[in-house]
């Protein structure tokens, strides 16, 4: 399992690995928002948590179609399926590698980009906490979507359509936690809901992903 994690991280960091893709997209979205909605500080401050969360979610979505498709094309998935490693563990490790190369950089970049959107000072901590809690769910659900569409050529559109509804609860509670944090009100309810969603998806989704992957590889 550790070998798979190290291999995925190494591949992501090498040329063509797509490590910077999500991060660059996140940067582009958040820098363009002030141009499109206008530079009023008050308006930006009020929409900042939502924009940052939405940007992070879309950046995560953008990198999903590489998650399993590349391994499917070169036959690695077939070989992994016949290896003694349980497929549930393999998809969990792949989701973890996706989070480490996509989700974690977004979490770390979010406060820097928050400056561009005039995020209130009180909001930085809660923004990072809510993203750190929520992005693992995005990776795990995304792995399920990637597993569903693994045999389909150019399955990116289908993948987005399938995964977006599943992302909605995470987005609602994550953005709400960040918004309440920025406004200085109590964040515990959305934060607990967000943590619950993340833990539940981490617990259940690998089994669903492995099951659909077995069917997809037939």
């Amino acid at each position: 399992m550790i070998a798979l994690l190290i291999r995925d991280l190494r591949l992501a960091l090498r040329a063509g690995g797509g490590f910077g893709l999500g991060l660059a997209f996140f940067l582009i979205v958040t820098t363009l928002v002030p141009f499109s909605v206008g530079p009023e500080p008050a308006l930006l401050a009020s929409i900042a948590p939502g924009v940052l969360w939405l940007g992070a979610l879309l950046a995560c979505l953008l990198s999903l179609d590489r998650l399993l498709a590349l391994d499917f094309e070169d036959g690695t998935l077939d070989l992994l399926l016949t290896a003694p490693l349980p497929l549930e563990a393999a998809v969990s490790v792949k989701a973890l590698a996706h989070w480490l190369t996509t989700g974690l950089p977004l979490v770390l970049a979010a406060p820097v980009l928050g400056v561009l959107l005039n995020l209130p000072v009180a909001g930085y901590g809660w923004l990072v906490v809510s993203l750190a809690l929520g992005t693992p769910a995005l990776s795990v659900i995304g792995t399920f979507g990637a597993a569903l569409t693994v045999g389909i050529k150019r399955g990116g559109l289908l993948l987005s359509l399938l995964v977006l509804p599943l992302y909605v609860p995470t987005l609602i509670f994550g953005a709400e936690a960040a918004r309440r944090g920025a406004a200085g009100t109590d964040v515990s309810t959305p934060l607990l809901m967000l943590a619950g969603i993340t833990l539940a998806t981490i617990a259940c989704m690998p089994f669903a992903s492995a099951a659909v992957l077995r069917m997809g590889l037939r």
Binding site: R7, R14, G16, G75, T76
Partner: peptide, 13 residues
């Protein structure tokens, strides 16, 4: 140990 038409190699490794 199965070996199919594809070798499961990563070009960047």
């Amino acid at each position: 140990a199965y070996a199919g038409h594809a070798d499961g190699l990563k070009a960047m490794l």
